[in-house]
Design a protein around this nucleic acid. Sequence first.
DNA 1: TCTGGGGTCCTAGGACCC
DNA 2: TCTGGGGTCCTAGGACCC
Length: 394
Amino acid sequence: MTDRTVMHIDMNAFFASVEQQANPELRGKPIAVVGGHGRTVITTSSYEARAKGVKTGMAIWEGKRACPDLIFVVGHNKKYTHTSAKINGIFRDYTPEVEAFSIDESWLDITHSLSIFSSAENIAHLIKARIRRQFGITCSIGIAPNKLLAKLASDMQKPDGLTIIVPENVSRILERMPIKALCGIGKKMERHLNMMSIYTCGELGRCDEARLTRKFGIIGKRLKDMGQGIDNSPVIPFADEGGVKSVGHSSTLERDIDDPAEIQRFLLQLSEMVGSRARRYNVSGKTIHLYVRYADFFSSWGKQTTLKNYINLSDDIYRTALGILNTVELEQPVRLLGISLSNLKHQAEQLPLFEDERKKLFATQAMDTINDRFGKMSVTFGSLIPGKEKQGHM
DNA sequence: TCTGGGGTCCTAGGACCC
DNA sequence: TCTGGGGTCCTAGGACCC
């Protein structure tokens, strides 16, 4: 592969920054963005909160213990998605090759933009300035010969960092870098490698490939490459990549439930969430996956079923998920329920052939519009709400 | 006051078809 | 007599990312 210049951009404390920008009273203060009410954890916290020891994943009470004046803000996903889309629009002013890795991280292949904007560093400064001016948000940028190293680089200075790894410095930087710093090596892999006396990227890169392959199979080669900072994976713009591959929604209940009617009501809500999002994305899918976590937190199961046809209507999703649920005997009260739709087909808008299908589609679209405007589940299929149905029907 | 929610990718094993 | 073997689709589960 020819020499490339890849940039990785990571929004600093993204959700918290967006909230602080939207509400000036929150600026400069320790804030934590949380998922909602009930049993939730901290999704993101501002740097002021992090300085006091607040971390992502903490329960509310843990956050309060670490930082008594912590301000909790319930997150607004739509706001983050919109901001993220606009920021990615800025990136596209510098190269068409932009790959969104998550809502707050993207890779840019700027190899062919260097001659226009004089240097990678210059592009980084331009982008930083625009994001700061337009959104009041700082970001950390890493520039390197590939995605793996660019991401590593953006992690090296936070917040508001700019780190450049040039090819000559790769081996020196990796020599003492802990393997866990590499994107793709998580807790489990770290433990396995540690047991082989491998702790740093330098050690991983020098490890005998056969030894890694014996232990990890076909990913052995990939691990050795990672240790050496080799990564040939291309930056893939969203449009080329074929879009989302699954649409899911899961939620922890405010309290554990075992009443079947209550479980069904919740399943219907989830189906509506998944369905409306699938329809907004203009996708339908034929695999429905139901996930249940029990009250004890540790035991859970997932079951999936694949249909002959593609669906994205809430009640089709609901009926399928309910069908799965009815094949199992619940062992404990339920803590969390989740539904996801996969095996997706991205479709162009198309009107169904038959009158009754058309009616159903129009009714669904009207419902989506109202729910978009007034909040989830303002309107739903009345006939599907358990309890309103005729006895013995379900 | 225990412990969220959105995803992606990979593997193993079975069914089925040619 | 022997009992092949590739491809594809499916389910289940795990690891990883933010």
